[in-house]
Design a protein around this nucleic acid. Sequence first.
DNA 1: ATTTGTTTTAAACATTTGTTTAAATCACCT
DNA 2: AGGTGATTTAAACAAATGTTTAAAACAAAT
Lengths: 215, 215
Amino acid sequence: MSVVSQATREHILKAAEHLFGQHGFSCASLRQITDEAGVNLAAVNYYFGSKEDLYKQMLFRRVRPVNEERLNLLTQAEQLAGDQPVPLRSVLDTFIRPLLRRAADSALGGMSFLRLISRDLTDPQPFMLDEMAREFDPLVTRYTHVLTQALPGTPLPELFWRMQFTIGAVLYAAAHQHDFERISHGLCRGDDFDGCIHRLIDFCAAGLGAPLSTS
Amino acid sequence: MSVVSQATREHILKAAEHLFGQHGFSCASLRQITDEAGVNLAAVNYYFGSKEDLYKQMLFRRVRPVNEERLNLLTQAEQLAGDQPVPLRSVLDTFIRPLLRRAADSALGGMSFLRLISRDLTDPQPFMLDEMAREFDPLVTRYTHVLTQALPGTPLPELFWRMQFTIGAVLYAAAHQHDFERISHGLCRGDDFDGCIHRLIDFCAAGLGAPLSTS
DNA sequence: ATTTGTTTTAAACATTTGTTTAAATCACCT
DNA sequence: AGGTGATTTAAACAAATGTTTAAAACAAAT
């Protein structure tokens, strides 16, 4: 194993990110990927073992930094808040920004990554379920805890439903931000990533803090 | 063509709904479908022409009634409101209920249909794009119009962003309602369809009506 | 220059896929 | 009973898939 190079490995990961992001796991073929990477077909199995393992490594190398960033920002926000609850909008910022800022940064996967993670959380490949659950478990714990304090008086089931709605809104926006411009006939700018983040925070903060239904 | 029977056609549609709903268009094979339907493989091409056409017919026969119901309820709500704007929560009810009530009604597709339509709106098959756009175009027009009146003072781009967030929350909830029970360790009841509808309305109404950001 | 271990390559493999064909079977009507 | 058109069936088709193999090419060190 040469210390440098590993160039073909990187080329494969890059092409896989692009094509899996565009067509999904089962509709992107290894031949498409190796062609785009300018690499021999067998290189995938040589470096990654199988198509599934390529997919896993390709996705996790992007997901892990996102979730680390989220937890770090959350810790910072908690320290900043002292013994007060972390403000709701700050919580949402730590959750949304690390994900959506990837859209503008092709070195971190760009829109391909956002489509990938959105698809894999809304419609997961069976072989990803376990490892994804393990990856996101710490997030669920931390965010549930900090949100119960940011929204005192909200019953836990109620909070949980609203967290799911939030996740739905965020993932949909993450994957379709680029299409909004076309769909809205130019009303929404598809490259206004920062605007999207702020609008998502406005929307979800209001939703999470909505008055509790009397029924 | 016998006036009765068409039984194999129905069996195929039923199995297609189930298996396309479970695995998606490309991961469900015609052989799986015809096996589950208890029907010969060639029957699909005999009755539907191709796999893509089977998928289209299977999906549209479920989607069209949903959107008709939505538009009818919207018309009723407009008549009830007279010259006043239709209340925001009523608008949301006409949009959400016709979809989510399918979850409990297996004669209308049940959860399979919700997974199907959610997947096809978040991650559409290329060959579905045109016909789906044509199917949903009237909805976009009507709901945009009625929401501008329910939320006076909201700039149109802002409204459009929030409509997208709403769609994301609704589709995610529609497809994952059943999983919430497991994910939440029993906190959320996965079969509480009516509760899900009400909570979605609470959440989205607050989000759509959130204070306008000053920036 | 030879050897050693890594990487790349082309070819072949066994499956699975959607689709087509042509014969067989069925249902219905005179 | 015979005939007609619709339906069902088994078989075959070509194309595409992920994976494996074994030889070739390469790089680095002695």
